[in-house]
Amino acid sequence: MNEYLLGLQGRRVLFAYAIVLILFIILPALVLVPISISADDSFVIIPEAFSLRWYEQLVGDPRWRNALVLSLQVAAVASVMATIAGVLGAIGISRASPKVAKVLRLIFIAPIIVPLMVIGVGFYMLYARMRLVGSFFPLCLAHAVLVLPFVMLPVSARLYSIDKRLEWAAASLGAGPYRTIFRVQLPLLAPSIFAGFVFAFIFSFDEVVVAQFLSGPRLETLPRRMWEGIQMGGLEKTITAVTTAQLLLAVVAMLIISIWQRRSATKAVSSK
């Protein structure tokens, strides 16, 4: 269609625009990759000598290492909690009456819409009163709330595309509600649950606003460490190692998700 609508000139402009846009999206992430593996201290984009010293520093320097481990722990606990609550919530909502479902869905999605600053302040006031600021599990819990929508959204979407009659079929064949969830719904939801988990993990892993409010003096998460590093002594190159590692993690996760979803999509389509 575009060929006829735009003409040659138009297509060239559109192509150029697309290239610029794509570069603009991925460049900020990509420039850090070569910097992170360059040997010298300065921020040159095309390095002369390569080294993994910034990665070594990330693991070797106790302050960096502690921050990294803490962030991994928070992200793991938060995303597991969010995944369990989100999957059960999505299934529950799919079984509720349409009116109730509408309200519930809005509540579950709210953490994505409400500004992080607001959520941060809210949790801070709550936790301050309960003397929970600076404790590990309360921070995980707050992050779990934040990342809940990342699980809810893909799982709900997938639930709606699964035929209701599969649930009915399972019931008619003698499977009670729990067995239907474990034997029919969860296997079909697995790719979207994994996707939700990955999004949740990545978001929690580099979340800085809420962490800033709730971690107190003792808990220093990786994004907070990075933030402080930047504020204190300008850009430290360890940061580029962190971001590169994150990038790699995200790319691998996305690859797994897309391969898995393609495989299970061909399965699900054939049932209709």
């Binding site: 079929a169 399972a170 008619s172 064949l173 003698g174 499977a175 239907t180 054939s270 049932s271």
Partner: peptide, 16 residues
């Protein structure tokens, strides 16, 4: 699930 009644659906509803 306690009725012991078999159902065949128009779209088959087999587990993919």
């Amino acid at each position: 699930y306690k009725r012991n009644i078999g159902v065949v659906f128009q779209n088959y509803a087999l587990f993919p």
